[in-house]
Nucleic acid binder design. Structure first.
Lengths: 147, 147
DNA sequence: TATTGTTATACTCTATAACTATA
DNA sequence: TATAGTTATAGAGTATAACAATA
C-alpha cells in the first residue's frame, strides 16, 4: 500500500456494460409489464398508449413501434374496444386515420407512468445529479430512442 | 445576460428520467431483436440463450425470464430443434431437466453479444469513465436485474 | 402433499402477402 | 404508381388449468 493514489477500479468492458444494459432493459420491462397487467393491458398496449402524446396516423405508430403496419390495426382495435383510444378521419388525406387517446386513455397513461416510477425503488436512491447523469448518458447512447 | 454564472441546466424530473429509461429500453431491445433475427432467432430465444451461462433447470429459466413455467417447454423445444441447447436429466432429482447450451449455442451467444455491442454506435462515443458511470448507475437502479 | 415438467387451450404479438381506397 | 389501412394466415410468446412422475 505504498501508492499515493489507489489503483483504478476495474473498468467495465464493453461486454460488461452490455450486460448492464440488458439487465436494465429486462428490469424496466418487467416493471412496466406488471403495471400494465394491473391495468388489464398487455405490454404492447401500454407502450402504444404511452406513445400517443399527440394524434398520429397508424403508419406513424408502426414506425415508432418498429413493427409492421398490419399489427397496428389489431392493437388499436383492442384499445378502442377498451375505450382508451379512438380513430379519427384525417381531413386533409382521406387515406389516413389518426389515432388519439380518449380522456380515459390519458388518465391511464398518467397512472401507469407514475406507478412504474414508484415501483423502481432503486431510482429513488439516486440524487439529482446522479439522475441527470444517468439521463444524459442514456440519451447519448440511445439518441433517437422514442420509448 | 448580466449573471455571472449560467443558470443551472434543467434537472430531469423523475418522469423525464423514466422517459429516458423507456427510450433506452426500446432502443436496446430493437437492436437486440435485429441481431437475433439475423441469426434466425426470436428475441425470446436469443434472450434465453444469453441466460444459459450455466446449465439450469427449466424452472430456474422460468424464474429468470419472469414467465410461467409452461412457456419454457416450447422455447427450449425450438432451441433444441435448432441444435443450440439440449436437456439433460438431473442425477440428483429425477423430476428436474437441466438445460445447457451446445457448442453451437455458445458460439451463437458470443456472436450475438458482439454484434449487439457494435450495433450501438452511441456506445462507442463514451469514454471509459463514462462507461463505468453508466454501468454503475444502471446497477444501482436495477440491482437484481438478470439480463 | 408439494414440486417439476408437460400438454391443452385461448389470447396477443408478429411478419408476410393480398386487397381496397385514396393520392 | 405509390401510399394508408385492412384482412387472412401462420408462427411464436403468454397465462391458466389439468395432468403424470417424482420428492
Amino acid at each position: 500500500m505504498t501508492r499515493t493514489t489507489p489503483p483504478p477500479a476495474p473498468v467495465p468492458s464493453t461486454v460488461l456494460l452490455m450486460d448492464r444494459l440488458a439487465g436494465a432493459t429486462a428490469g424496466y420491462y418487467r416493471r412496466f409489464a406488471a403495471v400494465a397487467a394491473a391495468h388489464g393491458l398487455t405490454p404492447m398496449q401500454g407502450k402504444m398508449l404511452g406513445l400517443l402524446r399527440h394524434p398520429m396516423p397508424m403508419r406513424a405508430l408502426a414506425d415508432l413501434l418498429g413493427c409492421d403496419a398490419s399489427n397496428v390495426t389489431g392493437i388499436v382495435d383492442r384499445l378502442e374496444a377498451r375505450g382508451l383510444a379512438r380513430r379519427e378521419a384525417d381531413p386533409a388525406d382521406r387515406r389516413i386515420k389518426n389515432v388519439l387517446l380518449t380522456e380515459e386513455g390519458e388518465a391511464a397513461v398518467r397512472c401507469i407512468r407514475a406507478e412504474v416510477a414508484t415501483g423502481l425503488p432503486g431510482l429513488e436512491q439516486l440524487d439529482e445529479s446522479e439522475r441527470r447523469a444517468l439521463g444524459d448518458l442514456l440519451a447519448r447512447v440511445f439518441p433517437t430512442a422514442t420509448g
